[in-house]
Design a binder for these strands. Structure first.
Lengths: 122, 122
DNA sequence: TAAACATATGAACATATATTCATGTGATAA
DNA sequence: TTATCACATGAATATATGTTCATATGTTTA
């Protein structure tokens, strides 16, 4: 864990602007935040999950219908819904044998819309 | 490419709510959009790149300083900057031997802030 | 021109991850 | 109770991806 603590030497990386590096370093958030953020965006970084989310924007849906809609296997959909569930992005309700999924976060739409703005620009 | 076009049968996936599926399907955006969006979020889905972006929020920085700041190799930083460049998220200017990178998009901050709101919630 | 420096990049390697396959679980209906 | 249906899940596999290593490129300086 600390075997790279002297890496500024061993990596032959030289600080060119020590003042800038120190200033920026002092403004950096906690290391854990970077992991949490990248973990969240990793969830949006897959076509299948983006598709599922867009479908759930329109309506709550069951696993089988999502599979049929996107020509995916039931298993693949279920696995991806699990990822979305773990990220607290979707919730579900059971009605007999059928499980209905829906979005469980007011930020999702905003995040995707901001991403859309970047993608569609120029 | 079309070998799965009859997948509703071959995958043994049955549509339970055909009306819902058809309604949602008609509201789906172009397939290409899903790829563009997931490609963009994939960029945010890595700790190293998130770190670099956060550093560039504070100040433009050269490759060497970024490497020193995060204890990364120069090569790793350079590779990740290339990804950010291809996603049109950063720009650069050359001053002699040194290349300075900075953010090239007004959406980046907004996207990460929305993600932050989700991460910090509850 | 040669040497040194900052950066870029291709190949190799290790790890992460998405899908499939087989099977398990929970609920309904015959 | 047994069969069937909708869904969940573990293991295996194939692919994607991040880092390292070696080296190339471009710039400055001796």
């Amino acid at each position: 864990m600390d075997r790279n603590s002297d890496c500024i030497e061993s990596c032959s990386v030289n600080v060119i602007h020590e003042d800038v590096v120190n200033k920026v370093k002092s403004g950096m958030p906690d290391e854990e935040l970077f992991y949490d953020l990248s973990d969240l965006f990793k969830v949006f970084g897959d076509t299948s999950r983006i598709k599922i989310i867009y479908a759930l924007f329109e309506s709550e849906m069951c696993v089988c219908d999502l599979a049929a809609l996107f020509n995916m296997s039931q298993s693949a959909v279920s696995h991806q819904l699990r990822v979305l569930k773990q990220a607290r992005l979707v919730k579900y309700r059971r009605d007999g044998k059928v499980v209905y999924y829906s979005l469980d976060d007011e930020h999702v739409k905003e995040i995707l819309d901001k991403g859309l703005a970047h993608v569609e620009e120029k």
